[in-house]
Design a protein around this nucleic acid. Structure first.
Length: 416
RNA sequence: GCGGGUGUAGCUCAGGGGUUAGAGCACCUCACUGUGGCUGAGGGGGCCGUGGGUUCGAUUCCCAUCAUCCGCCCCA
């Protein structure tokens, strides 16, 4: 029997990890420059948590969750998104009890039972951040600013953020009603499944790709008309602040989010180069979620960015070519002890060192050094042993020099 | 969950109802017993995804299944 990774999952091998680590490092250094701290929550939570936060009509909850019952008969779910866990931890540890603003970042796997496709896996990975405790438009702007900085750091040019305001819950209800009225005649021609799906979340019609629906939605009412004065002012202020930041954005009044907890500002960055899964990240405000999950009133916003998708659109870049600084070669058996001694001393100084565990002949050892991409080879044979010296060979240009052992250990010869 | 494409060597891919299934790259050995890459010569490697059917005979045709890719859907 040959085993393979479960459908929709993949192994990340060392050669893929350079790009991966680069992405994570960029994210981390950006969010840390804004004072965000890492939060790590369990990979699974009570199923109820996700149903309460994302909403039981969302596809994520209704058909994509990895839910299981443990031996204590608890219903648990591998997390399909990051926000719910952070908010749960925030409430559990009473972090918001004294008020104030709290900034978290995370890097997590997410699990969704869905048909695998380009940019879509059953175990995906996200980096994200949550800014809890501020209802200021400056908090929206900060999150959007970090998002654009992140993509720019990855070399993804001309990042455009699509933004929209979906207002407060009340406005959304009224607007949803208006949409339903607008499509009433059309709905009467469709089957029951489509009808019930549409009635549950009418706003999804806005970004539907069906040409017929697209045409129909052109004449549909716009959300602006249903926004409260407060929401409108807020959205206008946000646009001004984004201008101040110099952020490239575009208002898209059809932009809605699939998870129920969002309100007011929502945003997304897309790419047309990765096929159907064009969304690189999604975020927005969730002013009621903390309270809804049992905490204090805590207006908040956040964003989650898909790592797999970022990697798809990211331009190729050169990563460091060498995996080792020194590969030690023992020309004869008597050199082996010295090889171990010197490689360990160099390792303690932070150099990446290795040698042939099988101690084959010098030619084989050289080949191995080459294959392991070592910057230098250090040759230790009988000559070197009697002179207490080493021969250092630069593997790029083939230059070779003989230096004393002490000089080799104290100098940074061959380091660069 | 629905539709379409593809599964042949480690990788990229040819091929084709009939002895022993190919190429390029990679790998190993030797030329080269204290020196990798370059060159030359040689070599190892395959249940042709899996299960069933048709057939004298299937890796090739048919069905199923699994995986993978693309689209729908959904979303990151």
């Amino acid at each position: 029997m040959n085993y393979q990774a479960p459908r929709g999952t993949y192994d990340r091998l060392p050669q893929d990890s350079k790009a991966w680590e680069y992405v994570i490092r960029q994210f981390q250094s950006i969010v840390e420059s804004y004072g965000y701290g890492e939060i790590s929550t369990p990979m699974f939570e009570e199923t109820e948590l996700f149903i309460r936060s994302s909403g039981d009509t969302s596809d994520v909850v209704s058909k994509e969750m990895y839910t299981f019952t443990d031996k204590g008969d608890r219903s648990l779910t591998l997390k399909p998104e990051g926000t719910a866990g952070v908010v749960r931890a925030f409430n559990q540890h009473k972090i918001g009890a004294q008020g104030g603003i709290h900034r978290f970042w995370y890097f997590i796997p997410i699990f969704r039972y869905d048909r695998p496709q380009k940019g879509r896996c059953r175990q995906g990975h996200q980096v994200g951040l949550e800014l809890l405790g501020s209802d200021s438009v400056y908090s929206d702007a900060e999150v959007i600013d970090i998002t654009t900085k992140f993509y720019r750091a990855l070399g993804i040019d001309n990042v455009t953020v699509f933004i929209n305001s979906i207002g407060c819950e009340n406005a959304r209800k009224q607007y949803a009603e208006a949409i339903l009225q607008h499509v009433a005649t059309y709905l009467s021609t469709k089957d029951e499944e489509f009808n019930s799906k549409t009635r549950k979340n009418p706003l999804r019609l806005l970004d539907n790709k069906d040409p017929e629906i697209k045409e129909l939605m052109k004449s549909a009412p716009k959300i602006d008309a249903y926004l409260s004065e407060h929401s409108k002012d807020r959205f206008n202020k946000l646009k001004q602040v984004l201008d101040t930041y110099g952020i490239n954005y575009q208002v898209d009044s059809t932009l809605v989010r699939g998870l129920d907890y969002y309100n007011e500002t929502v945003f997304e960055v897309t790419s047309d180069t990765i096929g159907a899964q064009s969304s690189l990240c999604g975020g927005g405000r969730y002013d009621n979620l903390v309270k809804q999950l049992g905490g204090p009133t805590t207006p908040s916003c956040g964003v989650a960015m898909g790592i797999e998708r970022a990697l798809l659109v990211m331009p190729e870049r050169e990563y460091e070519q060498y995996n080792l600084d020194f590969f030690f070669v023992a020309a004869t058996d008597s050199g082996m002890n010295k090889v171990i001694e010197l490689s360990n001393k160099k390792r303690l100084k932070g150099y990446r060192c290795n040698f042939d565990l099988d101690f084959r002949n010098i030619k084989q050892q050289m080949k191995l050094a080459h294959r392991l991409n070592s910057k230098n080879v250090v040759i230790i044979g009988d000559d070197e042993l009697t002179k207490s010296s080493v021969t250092v060979k630069n593997m790029e240009n083939g230059d070779q020099l003989s230096i004393s052992e002490t000089e080799f250990l104290t100098n940074d010869v061959g380091a660069n």
